[in-house]
């Protein structure tokens, strides 16, 4: 059970971003993807759910290619492995509970998933009435409605104050304890060392460090391959 990237290449306007990236991410535990800005961390997530098409290489979920799936089939992949972009993308005229209910499901499921992210008391608030950390957690609850096998999160704590970031990280740790893993694109090395099981470094479009978080000592210096 893994998400596999094999010799993945992607360029934008002739500028190579991913240059033969290969890695196997198990669909369990917390894997933090780290790397310098522009190294292609988010591109990996976007390509994994079909928002970007690869120039070359393969991405597979449990051995089945996902990078070549047509748009309608990608819906199933996006349900199994929801991708949460940096912005929580909540609809501002709906309450948090109504936003969480968007993918479908019963009121009991909505309540349960709001509780899983610690938002039971805030379901009737609108996104504008709560802080950015709560909005992020509501977006996670919405993804949970899809009964996912794994989550992809793009910089879930960027732009949050320390307390809100800690709550989001604690939510991810809690979900891991419940058996739901995630791949988290992050700039927060302290959080990576505290919460991650595994760190995957993207260095110049290729795999850098990939191993236990405890042994991760920081980014590979530029110029070192």
């Amino acid at each position: 059970m893994s998400l596999t990237f094999h010799e993945v290449k992607k360029s934008f306007d002739g500028v190579p971003v991913l240059q033969g990236f290969s890695a196997e991410v198990p669909l369990q535990g917390l894997t933090f993807v780290v790397g310098r800005s522009g190294s292609g961390k988010s591109v990996l997530c976007r390509a994994a759910v079909g928002l970007l098409r690869l120039d070359a290489g393969e991405i597979a979920l449990d051995g089945g290619r996902v990078d070549t799936l047509p748009e309608r089939a990608l819906q199933r992949t996006r349900e199994q492995v929801p991708y949460l972009v940096q912005s929580p993308a909540l609809l501002d005229w709906l309450t948090l509970a109504q936003n969480v209910a968007l993918p479908g499901g019963t009121a009991a499921e909505v309540e349960k998933n709001l509780a899983r992210v610690g938002l039971s008391a805030l379901g009737d608030k609108r996104p504008a009435e709560v802080g950015p950390g709560v909005r992020k957690r509501a977006a996670i609850a919405r993804a949970l409605m899809l009964r996912p096998r794994f989550l992809l999160l793009d910089e879930p704590t960027t732009g949050l104050d320390r307390e809100a970031a800690a709550q989001v990280n604690a939510t991810l740790a809690e979900l891991r304890a419940q058996g739901l893993g995630a791949l988290v694109v992050s700039h927060d090395f302290a959080a990576a060392q505290t919460f991650a099981d595994t760190v995957l470094e993207v260095h110049r479009g290729k795999k850098g460090y990939h191993g236990p978080a405890k042994a991760f000592r920081g980014l590979t210096p530029l110029g070192v391959e």
Partner: peptide
Amino acid sequence: DGLKLIPVD
């Protein structure tokens, strides 16, 4: 992308 990721058909 936000619509696709909800995911909306």
